[in-house]
């Protein structure tokens, strides 16, 4: 257990007056209050330290004990035993914190003072803080509903991610945010998805887009090509005299629609006709023959 210098925490001198303590506390509390620093765990930690320091230093009894035994906190218990009078309940006047909890205090504090007097004060129930997290997934991961376990503040959260979630989409997981205070409800967890496209398709909602190079002869005469889709390879018939840039829709071969089980978008294929290069002599002659037909 580490000794905590409460004067250092509040950035004040050991000779600080009650007014100085109150002023320093207010200044730092305004700076680090969790509501003014959303999703900032460092600020929350600092706020708890400030809160704890104020709890001790703004109470003359506790401050006296801290000043006497602070560095030798191990003797504090003996000191307590030696005292015949009971522990003073609460403190008169003073500036009280509404969002503090006994469990927010350090082991050092607990060993010296055995808990917070604040819990006997205003028993207001607060909803816990909302948390935000980002989850990175590949596009292929979200083709089907995806189960994932998140580790948040040492708590495991099992999550089923619906197929077809969008890049940048945020979902709310009720009750998995910060713990409520004084029996208040827990906050919520907001997860924003960052979807990395690890495929050759372009995605727009549930529709997918792909460009396919087509040999000139297949475009002119028609034929069959094999196309990669997210479900595997499919064979496609190409119509004769297919034009450059023409599009074909493969119904239901797109991406799953979000929260619409069994429904899929479409796959749009754009044909780019590949002009031949490095023609052989024979091929050139054949083209010359074609040219004679005013093609």
């Amino acid at each position: 257990m580490e000794f905590i210098d409460y004067y250092k925490v509040l950035e004040i001198d050991k000779k600080a007056s009650e007014k100085d303590i109150k002023g320093a506390y207010r200044k730092l509390a305004r700076k680090y209050h969790p509501d003014l620093n959303p999703n900032d765990l460092e600020a929350e930690k600092k706020f708890k330290q400030i809160n704890e320091a104020n709890e001790v230093l703004s109470d003359p009894e506790k401050r006296k004990k801290y000043d006497e035994y602070g560095k030798d906190w191990q003797h504090a218990e003996e000191f307590e035993k030696a005292k015949s009078s009971g522990r003073q309940q609460g403190r008169p006047g003073g500036y009280t914190y509404s969002s503090g909890r006994a469990e927010d205090f350090s082991d050092f504090f607990e060993s010296m003072f055995g808990g917070s007097s604040r819990t006997q004060g205003r028993n207001v129930r607060y909803r816990g803080q909302d948390y935000s997290a980002e989850l990175k997934l590949n596009l292929t991961d979200i083709r089907v509903a995806h189960k994932q376990t998140l580790n948040l503040n040492n708590k495991k959260i099992r999550l089923t991610i619906p197929a077809g979630v969008e890049d940048g989409q945020t979902i709310k997981i009720s009750g998995h945010g910060g713990e409520g205070i004084n029996g208040g409800p827990n906050g919520d967890l907001y997860i924003t998805f960052s979807i990395f496209n690890n495929t050759s398709f372009k995605r727009d909602g549930a529709n997918l887009y792909k460009t396919v190079n087509l040999p000139l002869t297949t475009a002119v005469l028609g034929g069959e090509i094999t196309l990669d889709t997210l479900d595997g390879k499919v064979k496609m018939k190409v119509k004769p005299e297919t034009q450059n840039g023409s599009k074909v829709k493969l119904q239901g071969k797109g991406f799953p629609k979000y929260k619409k089980e069994g429904e899929f978008g479409d796959l749009f294929v754009t044909y780019i006709i590949k002009m031949p290069s490095k023609l052989s002599q024979k091929q050139k002659e054949l083209f010359k023959e074609l040219a004679k037909t005013n093609l």
């Binding site: 207010r26 509390a29 305004r30 209050h33 003014l36 914190y97 509404s98 207001v124 607060y126």
Partner: peptide, 8 residues
């Protein structure tokens, strides 16, 4: 309410 009470 928290900001009002905690930070005046």
């Amino acid at each position: 309410v928290r900001l009002h009470h905690d930070l005046n």
